[in-house]
Design a protein around this nucleic acid. Structure first.
Ligand SMILES: [Mn+2]
Ligand SMILES: [Mn+2]
Ligand SMILES: [Zn+2]
Ligand SMILES: [Zn+2]
Lengths: 138, 138
DNA sequence: TGACAAATAGGAGTTAATCCTATATAGTAT
DNA sequence: ATACTATATAGGATTAACTCCTATTTGTCA
């Protein structure tokens, strides 16, 4: 919790009851929750919180790297027709996903425990980033 | 294109003009398109195709590993409050994302070209898979 | 304690994605 | 070739995720 206060001060985020409740709910969450799932949890502590506030809070936390995004902001699912071995940069602000090529990453071995249990269709390294353009903006 | 026919036969997908057109459009696409973007491209060849068909086709292609998904099926963006170094298994059928821990992956170095241009908030290896449950179903 | 920018609730609006159903068609057997 | 049947399709309806809007409240700092 001290960590929360430190982070908020660092990024000039006001310490509101809503933000605190969202942070707490996240710290207890071992899943990969959707905004709505977080909303449902937070409501226990903070019954009047709005879904919009939860969404805004999650977005700002992710933009500062306090939490990671699994699927990023933006409109619609995205598909990847590029079948060459490659890796991804995913901008947490604008949602853009760019390819990069890096041989050292191509040769990663899938752990055998995983291969025994799952059919692996694709593997890549995904870096969550803030891109140059978005860095300039704010 | 022979590849397309091979894949379709392998998975018992009928070779329809719509499916062919979607495949062609994907092979020419160097971006990470949304279903709607694919739809707009395919319409040039195939003006009467419906968005629903494009969506279904993309989902089936991704389920067979013909293309990869960047953001997966399912409802809503997902956030990740787990701040320990870990990696992801993303089931392309049910959309579930599970954590796995694998030390060899934790120590990946970010290429310096990337670090110079981007602020890196997080890095992980993401494996697109079909999970055990979904494998059984079909 | 007062001033002000930041944050919030709640509802409206906007898209993406899925579902539904009647029609069409690809593949296969005759 | 022809007929048959499961598969696939178009197009519209519905659902649900997300964002935007505006009046009101609240945290922070002087
Ligand atoms: Mn890619
Ligand atoms: Mn995770
Ligand atoms: Zn960006
Ligand atoms: Zn699954």
């Amino acid at each position: 919790m001290e960590n929360f206060i430190t982070q908020c001060k660092k990024y000039n985020l006001r310490i509101t009851p809503q933000r605190t409740a969202v942070y707490k709910a996240l710290m207890e969450d071992k899943t990969h929750p959707t905004a709505d799932a977080v909303y449902q949890n937070v409501k226990k502590d903070c019954p009047n919180i709005s879904l919009d506030t939860v969404n805004r809070t999650l977005i700002s936390f992710s933009e500062f790297g306090i939490i990671d995004t699994v699927m990023c902001s933006g409109q619609g699912k995205k598909y990847d027709p590029n079948s060459k071995p490659h890796h991804h940069l995913k901008c947490v602000k604008c949602g853009k996903i760019s390819d990069f090529y890096h041989q050292k990453y191509d040769s990663l071995k899938v752990p055998s425990e995983v291969e025994e249990e799952f059919t692996v269709l694709n593997k890549k390294v995904v870096l969550t980033v803030v891109c140059k353009k978005c860095n300039k903006k704010g």
